[in-house]
Structure formats: structure tokens, C-alpha cells
Simulated assay, not measured.
Amino acid sequence: MEVWIGGLIRHRGVVEESAPTLGVVWIREHGTGLRLLIDLGEPGVRLRRCDSPQAPR
């Protein structure tokens, strides 16, 4: 998945866990291996499925 914030790609990775009732997902970021919590309720945040895992731009 790609995480877009304010119209820019901020992270790319695999969704490991989601909590739809809380509006959050955890992704494992490609390249760094960090596990990130993404709050989908934050203004300007959106997820997009990507075809190939690449490092964030």
C-alpha cells in the first residue's frame, strides 16, 4: 500500500493489521522495515494499492 499525506507519497509497505472501528492500520514499511501506525482520520491521509513495492519518494 501507499500512504499519501497531503497529496504526496509518504510511505509504502504491507498492511499487517487493521482496526476499522478505530480508523487505523499498521503497515510494515518497505526499505526500513519499520512498523507504522497510520491514522486514516487525519486530514489529507489516504491509502492506495500499489503495484510494486518501492522506497518512498
Rank of each mutant, 00 (worst) to 15 (best):
A55M: 12
L47P: 05
A55R: 08
L8M: 14
R49V: 14
A19V: 15
C50S: 11
W4D: 08
W26V: 12
R28P: 00
P53K: 02
I5W: 07
G31K: 02
S52V: 13
P53E: 07
I9H: 04
L8Y: 13
L40D: 04
G44S: 11
L37M: 15
V24R: 01
V25E: 03
S18Y: 07
R57G: 13
T32K: 00
E17C: 08
R12L: 12
G7C: 04
G7E: 11
I5L: 15
L47Y: 01
G7H: 06
L37Q: 06
G33Q: 02
V14G: 00
T21Y: 10
R49K: 09
R35L: 14
L34P: 01
R49C: 10
R10N: 10
R10G: 08
P43K: 09
E2K: 06
D39T: 06
D51A: 15
M1P: 11
L34I: 05
D51I: 09
D39Q: 08
I9Q: 06
T21L: 15
L34M: 12
R48I: 08
E29H: 03
G7M: 10
M1I: 09
L37R: 08
P53L: 14
S52C: 01
L36C: 04
P53W: 12
W26H: 02
L37N: 08
E17I: 04
E17G: 06
R35Y: 07
Q54M: 11
L8V: 14
V45I: 11
P20S: 05
V25H: 05
I5E: 14
V15I: 15
E42C: 05
G6A: 12
A55L: 13
R49T: 09
R48V: 09
L36D: 01
V45A: 00
R35V: 13
Q54T: 13
G13W: 01
G23F: 07
G44T: 05
L34H: 12
S18H: 07
T32D: 01
I5Y: 13
E2A: 14
R35I: 15
E16K: 04
R49F: 10
G44W: 03
L40S: 04
G33E: 04
E17D: 07
T32L: 09
T32V: 00
P20G: 01
P56M: 05
M1S: 14
P53R: 07
G44K: 03
V3R: 00
V3A: 03
P53V: 11
E17K: 03
D51M: 06
W4F: 14
I38A: 06
E16C: 02
R35D: 14
R49P: 11
L40I: 06
R48Y: 11
G31C: 05
H11N: 10
P20V: 02
R57I: 01
L47E: 04
I5A: 14
E16V: 11
V45D: 05
